[in-house]
């Protein structure tokens, strides 16, 4: 009998630097499993963001580039345009993608660049120490919103999946989570579908993943999952926002 649970070939042996209870590890694994299942490791290039996943390249075993804050979609565009046969994905957090990189992500999606974005939304800047992100929930306390996010002052959290789905260019835009096992199964399915569309040269694809940050939220990992379910899921509703089959 073979192994039923093993390290994906696309994932390295290295122990991650992520905090206890962080969901990046789960999401990395889902990406690695999908790359193994599609047999594309030898033709994949990942792009690491700036943020907690800045060192993501240490945890995968295929070619990687490291971008500046928010610029991963522009780099992916450059790679994909000169080598359309490569499978390219950006792995970005919410500060990276939804704040400083908003221009790059909207235009890459709108051009219908044939790469995939894994967008990890945990409602906070992680690596820089828990500052407010464009996705921070109303009233949520962070180091730069110590009295809670004041939406009169800084507006409402940005719903990236909905925003990108509003573009007229065809794409695959979906939001899933990694809070519970059933979420994880659906998240993997979405990631695989996103890569599948890229393999077919069909469209741009983005999988937003509602995630947690126990360290910067000041909660235990279990509390963090509960907080995300209670506060984020009602606002960041899960599901497919756009498929290339849509009219």
């Amino acid at each position: 009998m073979g192994k039923t649970f093993a390290r994906p070939e696309a994932m390295s042996q290295q122990v991650t630097h992520y905090c206890p209870g962080c969901t990046h590890g789960v999401i990395h694994r889902l990406v690695a499993e999908v790359i193994d299942e599609l047999g594309i490791r030898g033709r994949t290039v990942g792009i690491a963001p700036v943020g907690c996943a800045v060192l993501a390249y240490n945890y995968f075993t295929f070619d990687f580039q490291e971008a500046a804050h928010g610029r991963a979609p522009a780099m992916a565009t450059g790679i994909k345009r000169v080598r359309p046969d490569l499978m390219v994905f950006t792995y970005q957090g919410d500060g990276d993608l939804a704040s400083i990189g908003m221009g790059e992500i909207i235009h890459a999606a709108n051009r219908g660049e044939k790469f995939t974005t894994i967008f990890v939304n945990n409602a906070v800047y992680g690596m820089t120490g828990g500052q407010m992100a464009p996705t921070t929930m109303p009233g949520q306390r962070t180091t730069t919103s110590p009295f809670g996010r004041n939406t009169d002052d800084v507006g409402m959290p940005i719903k990236v999946a909905e925003l990108l789905a509003a573009l007229q260019t065809p794409g695959y835009i979906v939001r899933q989570a990694v809070l519970k096992p059933k979420h994880i199964v659906k998240a993997k399915k979405a990631i695989k579908q996103a890569f599948q569309y890229q393999l077919e040269g069909k469209c741009y694809s983005l999988v937003e993943i509602v995630s947690t940050c126990p360290t910067n939220w000041g909660l235990t990992p279990v509390e963090a999952i509960k907080w995300a379910e209670q506060n984020m899921l009602p606002y960041y509703k899960l599901g497919e926002y756009k498929t290339p089959e849509d009219e």
């Binding site: 610029r71 522009a74 450059g78 221009g103 235009h107």
Partner: peptide, 18 residues
């Protein structure tokens, strides 16, 4: 590209890809 900033990374990505 959508801006010179983006363009600088498009050429970075393309160059890095050889």
């Amino acid at each position: 590209g959508e801006s010179e900033v983006a363009v600088s990374y498009m050429i970075f990505g393309a160059s890095a890809a050889g």
